[in-house]
Design a protein around this nucleic acid. Structure first.
Lengths: 107, 107
DNA sequence: AATTCACATAGCTATAGAGCTATGCATAGA
DNA sequence: TCTATGCATAGCTCTATAGCTATGTGAATT
């Protein structure tokens, strides 16, 4: 079973899907129809991508009559943020370790 | 042609490839042989993934005799950080520190 | 009640790419 | 020079999935 990073990276790796998420982040809540207009793909494809984004926790929806309004769920990006910070942290600590070593050798 | 985000997300979406990058971040420079030992896939597959990571700018290598030493190139994560920051505007402050760090360390 | 509309689901095709084995190409060592 | 080693490349197979059209479902409209 894939971990949280896996789901997020895989979900956001598709350009069409990421573009949908970006639009929801930038422009706020949108209906499926509104998203389909500028998505460059058919409505079923948009629905499918939204379903995948939903499963990843990146979006949520709200029914209003026969329309479905989707919106971004930004909190879901946290694992991605953490992962990136962690990688940067390891890098930095090794850099510092090297600095310390060089300082000690300098004496 | 795919943009920088596309390349990064696609490159890091594969678990095997991301694990290789993580190991290089955590443990520093490694030879292909050392990476292959714990990768769970064959050596050619490791080489292929390293090639893709290289193309994405996430790693670099150095030849030493018949060995190739790979290491993480963390600066390449900057576009990912930027994208995330942009999407999650209200987390911006939490990320400025990391962004600055990456900028200073980017070679 | 019948029709139209908004979206979801089903089922299919085609392609991308992750894995394998076999082999090539240097370099190190005998 | 001949063999062994470390890695890269070639060529293949197989699975995952992004896209499509057709159809289902439920709400609004007449």
């Amino acid at each position: 079973m894939p971990d949280a990073h896996d789901v997020l990276f895989r979900t956001l790796a598709d350009p069409t899907r990421r573009a949908l998420f970006e639009r929801l982040c930038r422009e706020g809540e949108k209906t499926v129809g509104a998203l389909t207009e500028r998505a460059g793909v058919s409505q079923p494809v948009v629905s499918k991508h939204l379903g995948i984004l939903k499963q990843a926790g990146l979006v949520r929806y709200r029914h209003e009559g026969r329309q479905t309004h989707y919106s971004a769920q930004l909190g879901a990006l946290a694992p991605l943020v953490d992962w990136t910070s962690e990688m940067a942290g390891f890098w930095q600590s090794r850099f510092n370790a090297l600095e310390d070593l060089l300082k000690r050798m300098d004496q």
